[in-house]
Design a protein around this nucleic acid. Structure first.
Lengths: 222, 222, 222, 222
DNA sequence: TATGAATGAGGCTTCATTCAT
DNA sequence: AATGAATGAAGCCTCATTCAT
């Protein structure tokens, strides 16, 4: 019995440990949104999470580790959603992949933007290069199925005949910019962000498609 | 003669002063590109410019002033190029405006990206809010002619019938993301960035156009 | 037992923390006296206190906070002594209030002068305006009983019939100047400072009195 | 004729030089009053005086020299007024000396306070020790006649029998404090400063007196 | 002679990380 | 295991003074 209870204790402890880890991440996110990326300190995170500063370092080796963790969490979810979209696309639902992608990225633009910024700031951090590599590989994990799908569409003449990754990188870029657009002070004084985002997502879903206008453009370029 | 020479001396001095200012900006830019935005200090800038730290403050009230200056310089050039494009477009050259815009922004993507990042980091800096406002108004300065041009194209059925600013904000977003794409470590391991950018610019120039596929999209959504 | 010891540990820690705070104040005071008010830096204070520069900021939000703290500590003591004097005066001991006041202010003239100077220099410091307000209210806290006491003396014809605060403000002024006198290089080449201060305090205690009392004092001195 | 004109030129120049020197002093004073003692820089002074910063250093060896100059100018005037008072006192006008002294010091309390502060801050400045010595000797210059006068009054039983300098140092102290009182934020919320200063000056003029005089003054006030 | 650009020492403050309890 | 006090490098900015023109 003592064995079982000690096992349970350990299990319990692990669970608590896990919960606290989530609390740290959650506190960090809260603070990023409320205070701005430059004004979040480990101290603040600890306080918000209701624990001591030293305890944070029992869960994460460094502040950067907290940040990559946020990035990875986000990217994993995104990857999942994209996989789903790809699956639906392969099942015949045309445009399902980019649709899923844009929906995912625009669902919580403030979070997406945060992750964008974190990525830029951590790009050269040596202590977390392993995790960054994981992030990159995560992103590329759907590459095979994406390329395959895109190639088929190119073959069918639906998409322009360029290397397949051009298509998804263009999507990435548009999503990236769309998110930033939501927060840019030059533009976000307008109130119809939602509709605008729909419009942009619409473009994202169909861009790269062949069609009338394309023909025109080609002629111009001749 | 003494009068003339003293006048000349003053002129000479002012010129030297101006040159020094340019040197500071230039040194800052160098360092931003070589060391990364987070590792540029006033001290480093001064050293790189070959002057004392205090001298920097003869030219700029604060570090932030250097940064906005970079932003404004860039934005002014961009605005000029865009105006040019708008003019050509109004002279009948179809797609000249977005073409000029994308060319401008993608001409020196590292600089464009720097400015993007500076904008984000300085968004809440109170000491330069006036200059930031100038930046915003600069951006909006082409709005009238852009809107007019776009409205005409919408009337002619070339562009989708949405508020005109949807079209140029979509362009802004795509350019924003395209620039970031150039530097993202997940993607830029590929070597054909140039072509990719051409592809994306092509999309930017034609996106929002009506055409066959659009019709399809609409049907799909039904 | 572990509970008790941990409680004790915490208590011990808090005590150490408090002691360290006192050490910082004490180091600051030492330096003010030895190096002069303008030559005291946070760095020096830390070194003198035997701690790191950053540690100072665990105890005080800013350098100014150290300074007001010194002021408040001093003013509180002064206020206490004055209250005591007022109480004794109300118990019939004539002149007890101004006597206590002068004794208090002249007990450590170098400290009194430091506080005077700090007050002047911090008068416009916005970050500690709250504490300064506290200082002011502390000073005014004895106003009611003082005024009452003085009014009675005025009614009895002991003091000149002017608004009561004239009397205590005159005391304040004389004490202020007397302290400064101790350090003024034009005058302090004389060696009988102590007696001089007694003389001035004597004036302070009786000034504002009408004829009668004066006579009495003179008799005493005979 | 050329000699005369060159002599005149030199005279003219000297005059201009002198005028400019006054302008510098005046500019410094303006700034001390408007910006506060801690916020006056040589640069500001030059600008306010309408000349270049370098030119200031043609007139004064250092910033400190400007400051002592202000102090000396003030002290000279004060000394003059006091001498006048002493003379009148020696001519039989009772209380003329302290009256003149208090009037002088309270005529422009903001200036007196400035000089007080400057003195404290410059007390240990080595580069102007000569001028500071001059200041001190200026102050003591009236000592002989003052002491004589006071001794006589002591002999006549008008003043208390203490070393004569006790009397004038007490005056100095009271004036010092009275001036500070005008600016202290704890007290100057009251609006009757003028009357209060009269009251304090009255004290200053009679303090140290033995009984008789008091009686007289009181009669006057009835 | 007048100028003002250049200088750089030095001040205050922040914060990720460590480590003794 | 949890804590939070301690640390000190590093950043930004000020300003009296110098000196070449």
């Amino acid at each position: 019995m003592s064995i079982r209870s000690s096992t349970e204790q350990i299990r319990e402890k692990k669970k608590l440990f896990f919960i606290r880890e989530e609390r740290i991440i959650s506190a960090a996110l809260d603070l990023f949104f409320s205070d701005g990326i430059d004004n979040v300190t480990v101290s603040k995170i600890a306080t918000r999470a209701g624990i001591g500063k030293g305890t944070v370092y029992k869960h994460f080796v460094s502040k950067n580790e907290i940040l990559v963790r946020i990035m990875l969490d986000y990217e994993k979810q995104l990857s999942l959603n994209l996989s789903e979209g790809i699956k639906r696309a392969e099942a015949g639902e045309s445009g399902a992949a980019p649709k899923a992608y844009f929906q995912s990225r625009l669902a919580r633009p403030e979070l997406d933007r945060l992750v964008q910024q974190l990525e830029i700031r951590l790009a050269d951090a040596v202590d977390i290069s392993a995790q960054l590599e994981q992030l990159h590989s995560l992103r590329r994990s759907n590459e095979a199925s994406l390329s395959e799908m895109l190639s088929r569409q190119i073959d069918r003449g639906v998409l322009e005949n360029v290397p397949p990754h051009y298509h998804y990188l263009a999507c990435w870029a548009l999503a990236q910019g769309a998110v930033e657009l939501c927060f840019n002070k030059s533009w976000n004084y307008r109130l119809d962000t939602e509709e605008l985002m729909d419009f942009i997502a619409g473009i994202g879903i169909t861009m790269g498609n062949r069609g009338q206008y394309r023909g025109k453009r080609v002629k111009k370029n001749d």
